[in-house]
Amino acid sequence: MNKIIPVLVAVIICFSVGVMASYFQVDAIQTWYPFLNKPLLTPPNFIFPIVWSILYFCMGISIGLIWNTKHRKRKILRWLFSFQLLLNFTWSIYFFYFQNSFLGFIDILLL
């Protein structure tokens, strides 16, 4: 049971970051994003929340497993994970809230 709690906490943290990021997307998804010139293979909008939910769930499990390990690089792995989670969050702000695809692109490159 003690090993499950860090995984559950990590999953909740990841989903919380996703929910917070979604607040920066709401207006732009309705008013700006539909009018962007997108490739023909762009998935329909209803796919994105499903895929991101799966991704955040898997991310939470992965950092939860790292949290449970005794590996000597555990601290750096947690730092790298936190940094990428922050970049995931800021991408939503740059791309959707500021409607700045260049900053979004730089953020993706950092990811």
Results as ranks from 00 to 15, higher is better:
L36K: 11
I47F: 09
Q25H: 03
L55V: 12
Y56T: 11
L41T: 14
T69P: 03
N37F: 11
P39R: 02
A21Q: 11
R74G: 06
F57W: 01
M1T: 11
Y23H: 14
F48I: 01
Y23N: 12
T69I: 05
W67Y: 07
I76P: 09
L110H: 02
R72E: 11
W32Y: 06
N2D: 07
F95N: 14
G18H: 07
V9C: 00
F24E: 09
N88R: 01
A10M: 01
S16P: 04
N2L: 10
I66R: 00
C14H: 02
S16E: 08
M20Y: 11
T31R: 15
L55P: 06
M59A: 13
F83D: 09
I76K: 13
V19L: 11
N88W: 06
V26I: 13
Q99T: 10
I63H: 00
K3Y: 10
I54A: 13
Y33R: 08
I66Y: 02
W67V: 06
S22A: 06
S92M: 04
S62K: 10
N45P: 15
P44Q: 12
R72V: 13
I106K: 03
L41Q: 13
I61S: 02
I108T: 09
F15V: 01
L65S: 01
G18P: 07
T69C: 08
G60F: 01
N68C: 04
S22Q: 05
W79S: 14
C14V: 01
L86T: 10
Y56R: 04
I29W: 14
G104R: 01
R78M: 15
T69N: 03
S101M: 11
N37P: 08
V17Q: 04
Q25F: 07
D27Y: 12
S16R: 12
L65Q: 12
S22N: 09
K38D: 02
V9F: 02
K73L: 14
F83V: 15
I66C: 04
I106L: 05
L86N: 05
L86S: 07
Q84S: 15
Y23R: 15
V26T: 15
C14F: 05
A21M: 13
G104A: 01
C58Q: 08
F98V: 10
F81K: 04
T90N: 03
V11C: 00
Y97P: 14
I12W: 04
D27L: 14
T42S: 12
W79N: 15
L109S: 08
M20S: 12
I63V: 03
V26F: 15
F89Q: 07
K73A: 15
M1I: 03
Q99V: 09
F57L: 11
L110M: 06
V19D: 04
G60K: 11
I47K: 00
Q30T: 12
T31D: 12
S16T: 08
R72I: 09
Q99K: 13
H71L: 15
I50V: 04
F48D: 05
K73T: 15
I61R: 07
N100M: 02
L109G: 05
L103P: 08
V11G: 00
C58D: 09
V7L: 00
L85M: 08
F105M: 12
C14R: 05
F83S: 13
L8I: 00
F105W: 06
A28M: 01
F81T: 06
S53G: 11
L41W: 14
I63L: 02
H71D: 12
C14P: 05
I108N: 09
N88G: 11
L87D: 08
I54H: 04
L87K: 07
F15D: 09
K38M: 08
P6G: 00
F46E: 14
W67S: 07
